[in-house]
Design a protein around this nucleic acid. Structure first.
Lengths: 196, 196
DNA sequence: CATGTAGACTAACGGTTGTTAGTTAGTTGC
DNA sequence: GCAACTAACTAACAACCGTTAGTCTACATG
């Protein structure tokens, strides 16, 4: 530990995520990363195993965080609309505390090697859970009857792109943003939505 | 011209866009591209100037297409809701006829060099026009009074992600998709939306 | 039949890539 | 005060990168 309360390894991972966001995994060299940390490329290997390992750490930890969040939401005993609001909050919260990593999760997952299959299974399960919630909401007449996949896709792509947009809006706090976004994303599909 | 009705250069650009979509600009080598075309990397240079030039061609032509589309929509004399529906159709149409290129537009624009500034200005103008349409819709009480930037962001990120999702849904035709998507994206913010 | 051109090829270039080996200075624990 | 550990360094590696030069073949045009 140092004065900032994070180990050198955590510092490297965080800086890597930042650079990966700006230029993408493939365009960032180990020498770029080292320079951003005021060290030489070879020294990085005192802390990490490989460049590939950096990407794996960044992406998998985030993907598992989403999976855990979805499990909690699935098994919670609230209305469908509240479950959707909880999903919005889940994305807002994770994106706020790891904006950089979200870029890799969205754009560089295909450069995972050993962990690619595992990542894809997590993503598939997440999307299936999401679409199931929407379907049950349509059955319960809480959600208006449109194509469930289109609804899911529409909401999820917006949430996935939060990392691009959130840094520009740090005047909004977390709760405010989640509420605002929830209004726009959910009121539109809410069966009982009031328009006046 | 050959039997497929496209020049070799066009074939190279199209294949490049396909590979850029799968792995990103930086991760695709000229040898990868050549192999996908059953030729050697050096032979590519009988048709193109550079790798950078491929990216420029793919991205700038698409960005200009969006700009032209927005100009037409801006100056058209229809309701705000119909303008939004026209924007949805613009994205669906362009994405259908150039799914691969849309990936580069979304993910690899930062690797433009000489044309980066020009691209950013096109994007900025597009987003400003978009948000202006939404603001005037709120004033005209055609759109419900939420944060215009959040509404724009929410719609635009969904439209920008169409390239990921459209290939999985080629059972839907163009008009059907544009209508479905328009319903989900626009009814949600429509001030006069009817929920029953 | 001669000539020009389109489009492929091989070979090679200078630079960059991720990574390893081996070394060294500073700090910690006994 | 010596040993062990941490974390930096220099030097170098083999592989790969985008690109150029120069050559060869097939075909169209006169």
């Amino acid at each position: 530990m140092n004065t900032t309360g994070q180990t050198r390894k955590e510092e490297i991972i965080k800086t890597a995520a930042k650079l990966f966001k700006e230029k993408g995994y493939s365009a960032v060299t180990m020498r770029d990363l080292a320079k951003a940390l005021n060290m030489k490329a070879a020294s990085l290997y005192n802390h990490i195993d490989s460049k590939q390992d950096l990407l794996k750490t960044i992406i998998i930890s985030l993907a598992e965080e989403f999976t855990r969040g979805m499990e909690t939401i699935k098994s919670s005993d609230v209305s469908i609309i509240d479950k959707l609001r909880a999903i919005v909050s889940l994305h807002v919260n994770i994106t706020i505390h790891n904006t950089y990593g979200m870029a890799s999760l969205n754009n560089d997952w295909m450069h995972l090697e050993d962990q690619l299959e595992y990542y894809l299974s997590l993503r598939k399960n997440y999307e299936e859970d999401f679409v199931e919630i929407i379907k049950s909401g349509i059955e319960a007449r809480e959600i208006r009857d449109s194509n469930p996949e289109i609804i899911m896709f529409s909401i999820l792509t917006t949430l996935r792109s939060l990392y691009l947009w959130l840094p520009k809006k740090d005047d909004l706090n977390r709760e405010e943003l989640a509420k605002n976004l929830g209004d726009v994303l959910i009121n539109g599909i809410n069966h009982q939505s009031i328009t006046e």
